[in-house]
Write a protein that binds this DNA or RNA. Structure first.
Lengths: 204, 204, 204, 204
DNA sequence: TATGAATGAGGTTTCATTCAT
DNA sequence: GATGAATGAAACCTCATTCAT
């Protein structure tokens, strides 16, 4: 428990450094220790290596990040539209909570090989997280299908739905950076409506 | 000229290493030299530093990558559907040509901060490349708008269109890795039709 | 304190290497570490760079070297002749203590091994040290002037006085190397007398 | 002959670099070649190695430097005072010709820029040059002894005479840098008189 | 248990020397 | 003969990891 709280302090330090734009190789053990407010050597009481620290921190973050979505979807008891809008709102809230972990360049920065973060374990973790996220999206879409509001559900439409949400979340989060003209600006409410509308289009 | 061909050999080596999942910090000058078949010191006859090599390699790649799209769109003289399909086909072809530069995990790997590549210059280059790409997509969409086939054109729909294409291109390129069930498999032709269809939905 | 003693070990190593005729560029960090009996990386716990190590080592040495002269002159309470002879004797003693830092080839820039370096900071330090030394010599000469034993005191005579002392100190220290014939050999006592005599001549 | 003129161009380049405060290790073969206006590889048509180039350049310089003194003294046919003054004037002139090779920080080791090197061969050369110089000084002093103007001649007084001359030459050459007060300023004529006077004192 | 001083392998960069042209 | 592109040994410096306290 004390053990677990130490680890969490360390995870937090790692995430802080990621937020500042550092890559795995850029992050120094001494920095992690400083941020966590512990001695450098103490890191090795809890982890076998630097890579291990980072891998666990990433896994920890992904779990923390996905949990609200998981719980939201599994306890969903509203109609499709309300469920969608709630999901999007949850997304916006989490995005704000972790805003410094995102950057506007990503998204469909599909040539992401250049950004390769090289810890094989983290790649695996990210893939799994994405797959779980897509499963959650599909569950929501299935509500819509049951309500006959949409019909076209498969990985393609689930992915497109995910993109629609993410693009909008990023639009809201990075309005100023994305170079969008003033006349195109919408309120958050409008944005959410647009997204819901886009989901309907995407899934017929 | 000889100078330029030397540099290209070096760019090639850098891209090869990126393909293998290495990040900027993971790539060693000695490796670049080995791959390029030259001596370590020779790198420094053409570049001021390792970072310089990588920055130029990225810029070179992005230029090479965007050029066919740029030319295709600027010379487009067909109707909307044919232009779309040609664009998607070009994408598929280029994806194959550079397939090892992509990975299936990316796409909406939106928490890309974790992949931070840390060379400020490359981030800028990627952003510019993405913006140019989106401009090209919008140009195509404008053809559709003139033909009254679509109406909803703005950054959101352009982004969604880009995602639709990219998702499909990745689906085709990584069919086996993405865990898609056999019965969901489509021919390339069908995929392209689906994508065109998705674009119509996305832009109304 | 522990910190200071580590630094002193490192200074000692640097001076040892200077003694062996190495210039700033000839001295390798690994050698300094070896001589100091510590690891290469440990140097950087105490200094920011190799140049920094050398600069501080030179400053340290100059301070250690000048301190006895400074104290001797500032506490001088004897007559001119005794003060002169005491000063010369102190010189001879210090020369012996640091004999390997001198070489017979130099002129009066007897600590010329250090000239081997091109670190701007060290040049400044040497100049300041020489100026302080000349001030001390002038203080002694002023005692002689008060006693009306000498009258001609200015920078020229102070410099000549310094040269007279340094030449004699080197004569004693390098008797065998300087190619002086046997019949010209003097005892240390005689040498000191000759030097005192020379000072009287030089300052009238 | 062409060979010899090539070498001289190279020597000149090396001396130029010394003048700029570089040590043996600081001087790059490519720089020597640039200054000499030839290709880097061509250096090796004339010299076996970089050290060889520098050693020969130093020897060449010392020969060029000593030759006028040697000739002046060996052809001396005036009285002691005139010979001394002529010698001092020659010194001042040569100092001006090669002024950038000297620096005010050194003591009498006035060509101290060369001390920057640790090439054993150059140390030997410098020692021999100094010994020859002292021989020339002694020859002049012997004229004074024959005229019964001075009596005290040995290595000590020869060295002191040499120092007296060098200090004054440096005083004239570096008046502004040496921090001498305005009221102590003398004309060159006065300086030469002072030096002659000092030589008389030094040698009784 | 917790620390951080110490280490040294391994990274980037420089530059004397070679050799094909 | 003359060149300078290419080389790679060797330098400086960083930082993950260890271990005595």
């Amino acid at each position: 428990m004390a053990e677990e709280s130490k680890k969490k302090k360390i995870y937090g330090a790692v995430l802080e450094l990621f937020r500042e734009g550092k890559s795995v190789k850029d992050i120094k053990v001494s920095e992690i220790a400083n941020r966590a407010g512990i001695g450098k050597g103490s890191i090795y009481l809890h982890f076998a290596s630097k890579d291990d620290v980072i891998l666990e921190a990433v896994e920890y973050f992904l779990d923390v990040w996905l949990k609200p979505f998981r719980e939201y979807v599994n306890n969903a008891d509203k109609n499709f539209k309300e469920t969608c809008i709630g999901f999007i709102n949850l997304h916006i809230k989490l995005f704000e909570d972790y805003s410094s972990l995102f950057n506007p360049q990503s998204g469909s920065e599909y040539i992401s090989v250049f950004n390769a973060n090289t810890l094989p374990g983290t790649i695996e973790s990210f893939r799994n997280a994405r797959l779980e996220y897509l499963d959650l999206v599909e569950k929501i879409l299935n509500i819509g299908a049951e309500e006959k509001r949409i019909s076209y559900i498969n990985r393609y439409s689930a992915n497109m739905t995910a993109e629609a949400i993410m693009l909008m979340v990023k639009y809201i989060g990075f309005r100023d950076v994305l170079g969008i003209e003033k006349e195109e600006e919408y309120t958050n409410e409008q944005c959410i409506d647009l997204t819901y509308d886009m989901i309907l289009r995407v899934c017929k």
